[in-house]
Design a protein around this nucleic acid. Sequence first.
DNA 1: AAGTGGTCTAGACCACGAA
DNA 2: TCGTGGTCTAGACCACTTA
Lengths: 253, 253
Amino acid sequence: MEIGVHSIGKDSYMRSLAYLNVYNILRKRIEEGFYPVGGILPSEPSLESQFNVSRTTIRKAVELLAGEGYLSVRQGKGSFVLDFRTTQRLNYITSFTETLRARGYEVSVKSMVIECLVPSTNILDKLMLPNLSQVVHIHRVIIANGKPIALMDNYIDAKIVPGIETFAGKFDSLYRFLESNYNLEIQSATDIITARAATINESNELAVPVGFPLLINMRVSYRNGSPIDYAVTTIDSQRYEFSISMIGRPPKI
Amino acid sequence: MEIGVHSIGKDSYMRSLAYLNVYNILRKRIEEGFYPVGGILPSEPSLESQFNVSRTTIRKAVELLAGEGYLSVRQGKGSFVLDFRTTQRLNYITSFTETLRARGYEVSVKSMVIECLVPSTNILDKLMLPNLSQVVHIHRVIIANGKPIALMDNYIDAKIVPGIETFAGKFDSLYRFLESNYNLEIQSATDIITARAATINESNELAVPVGFPLLINMRVSYRNGSPIDYAVTTIDSQRYEFSISMIGRPPKI
DNA sequence: AAGTGGTCTAGACCACGAA
DNA sequence: TCGTGGTCTAGACCACTTA
């Protein structure tokens, strides 16, 4: 198997980094059963020569796969292929609107504003974008059973969603929209959940008193290890809860 | 999902791994303000010569710190010290006290009350116990760095933890205690996270104003499919947030 | 142009697990 | 003992930011 050594410039998403190439090929082989579930990956030295790259590169690819639940890497034994189809059911990524619908709510979007701007460095940090990058900001008010339940603010690198302004009001599940229109399939995400008191603006948009406790969910969504979307969801705490299932104890240090 | 991120600094049998040493020293400097929040870490080449290790070692330490929310690492600019608040990765079942300790907090328990009672039907439902069952209730105030951070209320079927009253004040990680003293290893759990305003009692115990937003975590822990523990954690939202990592999209319907 | 982090190489030795 | 992953070195060049 040959790996393109260097392809310079191009689109920032077509860059062929060696470890990403290895990662993508290995992942495909796992998903297609070339490396069967329960089986063992070739050893790292073997992959080195197979892909003609250094150990560092192999290890970075394997680390990504292990982090996403494809592999269990054990010193002295090898890297075992996990049943990714079941592990993914534990904490899978759900869009907020999809979750509400699954709970039997009648969901709609009251208003949607799409604008292009240069956001705060905090948001650029989350998206790992350089200074002064243009970002698309989508603001929505989510209505469940006729009453506002949450505010959603999404931030996406403007380069990867050209022309998205023309779709204002024409979608409500952003994930599904990104998948079908831009071929941007989210693979992993990290949420941070906290709580705080409602501001005046929020109390107006959500129809709750000022100071009312709100649930805040900040999510960074990734594809191939790169952040795609930063989403802040501001939720009426009286009408929504997060539910999380877990298995096992943390790795011992 | 990160692998092996929760390195504990003050481990008694601390292996002299170079990257862990660098990690611990840098983390300590950040927590003590030697590298102030908003400031910038010395460059990686500078750290190389300062610690007399290779770039790989420095990068691994920095990667750990970034993964734990201490640093924002930006190409071409540097590594910036973030305003870290404690976060919990929920992919694994973690005890609240264990998580706080892993983040370098000085954790103690201000008061612990263990009592035996017949709880509300809501709690009996969660534990799948018949009406009028006796349940052990453990109430604790968790102190982090000298200030109350959370109230913990655990409910356990009295039959499976005989004599637990005699251990009042003698443990702080309940999971570890159940594992070692009753051979009750938790295998899975489901959390529900919500938010609400602090009551008068809660405002007294947590030293926050009445009406202040609190994070509420309700967890049912299972072993062999049977509920073992129902835990309600009532948390100062200014000092703690939950972190969840997810993989993949839900199965299509 | 200079300095930063990002990637990568070609080695080396160590710690662990199985034969 | 041998093969596995875990750690580490001393370089090198690339990509991004700032000046």
